[in-house]
Amino acid sequence: MATQTSSGSGGFSIGDLIRRPETGSLIGFIVVYVFFASLGGAVFLGAPGWSSWLNIAAEVGIIALPVGLLMISGEFDLSVGSVVPASSMTAALLCGHYGLPSIFGIAGGLTVGLAVGFVNGLIVTRTTIPSLIATIGTMFAVMGLTLGMAVLIKGSTSVSYVPDATTKALLGTFINGMFNVSIFWWIGFVAVYFFFLHFSPLGSWVFALGGDKESARNAGIPTNKLTISLFMASGFGAAFVGVAQVMTYQSAQVAGGQSFIFNSIMCVVIGGVLLTGGAGSVIGIVLGTMTFAVVNQGIFFAALDPNIGSIIIGALLLAAVLSNDSFRALAMNYASKKK
């Protein structure tokens, strides 16, 4: 049969498109966008609409990317929910309370994220505690530490800091008064993760880790190092968002990162990442994040009851898992049917 399309020869076919794991996510995004566009009208289609959902998407997206990679490798990270406030509190204390230049606050906040990720990675690789439980543990520990430190040092659960103009411009400004600069950071992160997962030779290792850890180890992949690095990446992503929040809103709160836990996981799952690991894509995660953000903000433009938004997100999540399974089965059978 002349179906020899090997050796990466380009070309486009419907079959190839359907086999892409992102197809389900793309359809989901289009359906949701059209739905809210028809209800939200011109405002939602214009800059105000785009900026409002892109701002949300960027914040969740910066965290969802590494969380998604972790899920592809077969691990969960729930600690991001407390790393966001912990890092923003660290940055605000270092700069706002102790008056250090903002670069120290940024570095300090990001270090907190990397450190929590490192601890998560150590617990997961050195013990048999599942990552779901391990990171719930570190989430509460970090939450308590953040509160304790803030009260101890500042005597308050919120610390304010007014960043200098450059820092503000880089991390916390609204372009045109609407588009948060973090959208560009998100795009940057997407590019980096896309390259890492799909083009760099290390990408296969992440999939292998989630597919079969034992075999990956036998194939000579440094599985522990890789797991720890991925946890550090997710800590870094959460810390980045935390630091950017201080620069944007000029204050840090002890609480307020919890929504990121479920939101990031939902973006990833809607984006087609397999919960048990081994499959997923960066494009899918990005599409999942955009879908989530459109629903999250579209509700206000469509003047619907906000509770309906939650119902839609919940239904989307279930539909996503179902459709992901179907698309995956399709991709697997495709080869064997074509005898």
Partner: peptide, 25 residues
């Protein structure tokens, strides 16, 4: 060593499976 299920990853492409851990660049 080749394990019972081949040490292969069902959701990975044949090419990536083949070169896992020794990726050509």
């Amino acid at each position: 060593t080749v394990h019972q299920f081949g040490g292969t990853y069902p959701l990975m492409s044949i090419g990536r499976n083949f070169f896992l851990g020794m990726e050509p660049t």
